[in-house]
Each structure stands twice: as structure tokens, then as C-alpha cells.
Amino acid sequence: MMPAAQRADFAACSGCSLCLLVCPAWRRTRDLRDTPHGRAKALQHGVAVVELKESIESCTLCGACEPVCPENIDLVGMLLELRRQLPPMILTRNITTNMQAERPRENVTLSASTPALVAGGMYFGRPALLARIKTLLGSARGITVANDNGADIALALEIGATVPPQRIERFLAPLRAHKTIVLTDGLLLRQVRAWLPEARVAGLGEALGALAPLRRQLRAGDLYVIDPRAYHADHERLVTHYDGLRAETGCTLNLDLQRIAIPATARSLRQRLGADAIDDAPQLRWLLQGRTIARIVVESESDRFAIGQLCTLPVVHLAELADDPSSPEGKQS
């Protein structure tokens, strides 16, 4: 991915509609206005940002549009910027106030030789899974799990709240020491990569998927659900990574014909915040349509939860593969 500074903005949109083909919001409404194409054209014609509120909030931020854009527009970055330009919600104000509050700096232990793991709140709710991930990703000297997981920053980015620089700095300070940083949140991942260009920043799926013991557990009949945000943020490189995974294991990936990830859920901002009712079924139906599969393997814990709600197939987190009772090797261990 090119740095944002070299990428084009909405003015470069030629209206080719390629983003529609991969846009989950468009799949839901079939309304051009709910797509990057629609927003770009509206802005080119001088429509005020606030008039596009509904469209801006309908975006799922899966990032699928970015790798297919022939004009190389920074579509995710621009959408985040548009959210910042909308009139703030109450939540936005609260979160900004919270982030501005001074807090004592954490004690930073410099352990450059270990990777750092920035895990989302969901993983702290499942200590066994987190422990498994730590074991898998830890180097000989272990792994450092960040106390500050930047969840408020991720939420602020998503809802368009401004993140104060001191808050970013407080989040980054302990991470600066690490050469390798693994993040579970795809949106945060994108930002951390821009903030810390020197570090090797990977998503949880990519990091785990590189491990031979886990790859060995994947097989034909598995639907491997790539976390779209992390994947699309670095598509050019990861497309090869995942194609290798598929070729080696025979699993099915949640990729379309353009090798763009089909998200398991397609929730608008309001759905994510609980303001609108969630309806994941249509998107999940599309994900599974016509596929003969026996098991679903996910990279993201939130996907496991969402799919598990609606689907009777076994759903396993990638990190749990070796423990999966339905997997032959898992049974032995």
C-alpha cells in the first residue's frame, strides 16, 4: 500500500463503479449513493458532507473498495475523514473528553526481542484463547501483551472522533520498542502501520497463518474467513500469502473472483453502535451460498461470535485449530 500522502482523493474518482462490485453496503441496498463512487461523485458536484450522513454511516469499513480502485484513491482514509466532518454524536464528545484526560504513563518494559500483541477487548473476555495466541506467537523470550489496547482509539477512528496527539503517543510509546507488532483490530492496524513505519505490523490472521502447526490443521472442506479490514489494508502483499495458504491446505477462502474478501458481517456504523438492529443473515448467506463446507475457521473472534449465532456448522478461531476436537490432530492431543 502506498502512503496516504501519495494516494489520490475523491476528486480523482472517474465513476467506474468497480467499488460497487465488492461493496457490502451496496450489496445490501443496491443504491449507488451508499458507495464510494456515489459519495465521490456527490462531493465532486459540491454536495455538503452533512447531506451524505446516511451514506457515510452506512459504510462497513471493510476496505474492499481500496485495492480495486483504479485511481488508487485512499478510500478508507477519506471515509474516516468524512466521518470526522459530520456533526459529532454524544458518544464522540464523550470519547474525546475521555481521551484528553491526563493519565499517568505506564511503566514501559523494553523487551525489543519479543513481539507485541495488541488484542481487542473480546480476547480479554476469553482468557483461554488469549493464552493460546500468546503461546503460538511468543518467541523464545515470550510475548508482550499491551496493557493499553487502543480500543478507544479504534472506536474514535470508526465514529469520526478526533484522537488527541497525546493519546496516540501514550498508546504508541510502549509499542515503539518492538520490531514486530501483532494487532487484532484491522482498523487500528492500518493506523499503527502509518504511525510506526519502521515496525513489522501484522494482523492476527497473517501472524497465526504463517505458523506451520496451524496450517497443517487446515484442510479441504474448511471455509477460512479472512478478516477483511486487515487483509484489504495490505492486499497486494497478502493476496500471495493467502493464495499460498489455499494451495497448500486445499481450504476454501472467503474470497471473490477478484480475490477480495467477502466479510462475514456487513454492519453499518449505527449497527455497530447498537443504534440500529443487527441483521447479519443476508451477508452470511452470501458468504456460504453454494459452498460445500464442513467447518468455518475465522481469524477474528468477533466473526466467530457472529457466525456462531446464525450458523450450525462448527466455527473455530484459527488459534484454536490445534485444539479443535473435530480436527484429527486435535483429537490426538
Binding site: G15, L32, R33, G38, K41, A42, H45, V47, E51
Partner: peptide, 8 residues
């Protein structure tokens, strides 16, 4: 009839 719709 909005500009956002027509302009596209």
C-alpha cells in the same frame, strides 16, 4: 431529485 443522486 438531490444533487447527490443526479450528479452521480
Amino acid at each position: 431529485e438531490s444533487l447527490a443522486a443526479c450528479g452521480a
